[in-house]
Each structure stands twice: as structure tokens, then as C-alpha cells.
Design a protein around this nucleic acid. Structure first.
Lengths: 152, 152
DNA sequence: AGTATTCCTAGTAGCATAGTAGGTTTTCTT
DNA sequence: AAGAAAACCTACTATGCTACTAGGAATACT
């Protein structure tokens, strides 16, 4: 049960864009450099974020990426769902409970409730944190890294 | 971000044992049959659970597995951690915050707090549900599957 | 003795991750 | 107009993990 680099890099890149919100297009190269991500790989991830409508891009020299909404309006949950797909710990949560074939395994009927509860809990945490929150956290901690202790 | 079959099957098998708690050793064959899990594969999983001290086994004919503690004293979190390792969404959470080399990527300092909060949330949900809770849920729903709506 | 069972080790197909590589198009600057 | 800087696009690949399968050895009950 891990978050892949897609999700992590995606959040990192979006955080980077949020920190430069309003400064015009930010080149992928500079994001990759600051966040220490492979440039070519990040390119693919940005493409996903662009298709999902969270960033817009400008081509050509002096081009780059920028957020297509304010940092307040993009949550970490939005990004994770875009990069990693729906937040479901087990596939049976994707099917409707009324489907008569969703429950192949005898135990699922009982454990399904457990996984659903965990997923809800994950979603509500991720949805409650916006890019703006992350930027504010960065400002609070100043030069000293407090590892997110001040978050919220 | 998925729970692997190790975790799911582990919980399923333990739930099965909890449903037969006090009835003597339960054969792997019967668990595999009821829970629809490959017998050989489940064997490996049971070995992990045995090494972790959650089940005990009796060899030979009429042998099998049984819980080594009461169902109240084993949580879903215990099982998941045994089967899937520590609940950390990103590896950097494994290292101490004071380690000076844990933070290779500029953004981690900020996003680390997010992942930590999610992990805490997952852990607290999983740790709050015992095998006894699952058994009780099963009794509440009787023949009708309510998909865990009654849980808690 | 025979059978039912756990225990142990080794292998393996398939898939996802995390990239690398290299070319094409667009746009700004000079 | 030329050149450079950037996004865009597609194809390839090494590595590792998952979810098994297979088969034999040891143990204990009947």
C-alpha cells in the first residue's frame, strides 16, 4: 500500500506551480530541477494533469506550465485521483453494492465495509488539503523544516 | 494505492478462523474453499501469520490452524501490517524526521506532512476494527448482505 | 500402513512502475 | 529569417512485485 511516484511527483510539481502562481508560465525544466524529478518522466505526468484540466501550457520559447485554477481550488485529493485513479483500496468498491456479481468471495460482504471506511478516511484527508495550504505551510516553517508538524 | 491480495486474503482467512474460534484446528483446505483462495498460496500467507504469532498450527491429520488470541485482541491493522509491512504511503516516513538525509526532494519537507496525516488516519481506522467486530457484523446482517453498512 | 495435514523451497507468467530516448511542432528572440 | 527554447508525442525497456503453481518432506491421527 504505497503512493506511487506518479502521485508524489504530481503533487510535488503542482505544489511547485502553486508556489509560482501568477508569475506566468513555469518551464518543466525548472520544476524538474527544483523537485529533482526526471525531466522526460515529469513531462508525461504533466500531460496527464493538463488533460485533467488542472494545468495549462504554453508552447515555444519562454513557454511552460501554470495552474488553471487558484491554489485554493485544487486539493491534493484532486491530484492523487488524477495521477493514480480513484481512491479505492480494493476493486470491489468500484462496483455497485447492488451488483449481484460484485461479491465473489464469501468474506467480502463483511470486509468490504472495512475497506470502504478506510477509503473514505483517506479521501477526506486528501480532499481537505489544498495547494494553498501547502504553500502556507512552507511560509510558516520558513527556513527551518518542521516536517509538516504545523500542517492545519 | 491498493491493498494487495496478501492483505485481503490474510484478513479473510483470519476472519474465517475467528468465525470458528474455539472449535479446534481448522484445516487450510476448508478455509481456502470457503474464502475462495488458492490453497497453496494461502499456505504461504498462513506461514507469515504464524511467524507473527497470530495463529498457531497443528500438523498431521485432523490438524489445522486456530487463532492464538481471542478475536477481540486481533485488529485488522495487526493483520494488514503483518501481511503488507508497515502502513507508510511513502518510504520517507520510515526514516526519522531528524535524519538529515531523509529529505532528498525539496517538496518532501512540505508534502511529508500530508502523507503522515493520511497514514495516521488509515492506521486508526484499521486498528479500531477487531476480528470480533467483523464476526458481530456477520451476525447482525444474517442472511442479508448489507455490505458493511452496520459496521460500528 | 496409510492418509491427511502442515511445512518448505523453488520456480514463473504477467503486469505495473519508473523511467530513457528521440523525434516533431510551436513560439519567442535576435 | 534563423536559431533556440520550449512543449508535445510515441515507442521502448529494465526492474521488481504480485499472485500464484508445483512438488516434495515432515508430522500426526486412524
Amino acid at each position: 500500500m504505497k503512493i506511487s511516484t506518479k502521485g508524489r511527483y504530481g503533487v510535488a510539481a503542482m505544489y511547485d506551480l502553486a508556489m509560482h502562481y501568477g508569475e506566468g508560465p513555469i518551464s518543466l525544466k525548472s520544476i524538474a530541477l527544483r523537485q529533482k524529478i526526471s525531466e522526460n518522466y515529469l513531462e508525461q505526468l504533466m500531460s496527464t494533469l493538463r488533460n485533467a484540466g488542472y494545468v495549462k501550457s504554453i508552447r515555444g520559447a519562454q513557454g511552460g506550465y501554470s495552474l488553471s485554477k487558484e491554489p485554493e481550488k485544487i486539493s491534493v485529493g484532486d491530484i492523487i485521483r488524477t495521477m493514480e485513479g480513484p481512491i479505492v483500496l480494493v476493486d470491489c468498491l468500484l462496483t455497485d453494492a447492488e451488483d449481484n456479481d460484485y461479491c465473489e468471495r464469501a468474506e467480502i460482504c463483511v470486509t468490504r465495509g472495512v475497506w470502504a471506511k478506510v477509503c473514505d478516511s483517506i479521501s477526506s484527508v486528501l480532499d481537505s488539503i489544498s495547494l494553498a495550504d501547502l504553500c502556507q505551510e512552507e511560509q510558516l516553517q520558513g527556513d527551518v523544516c518542521d516536517n509538516g508538524k504545523n500542517l492545519f
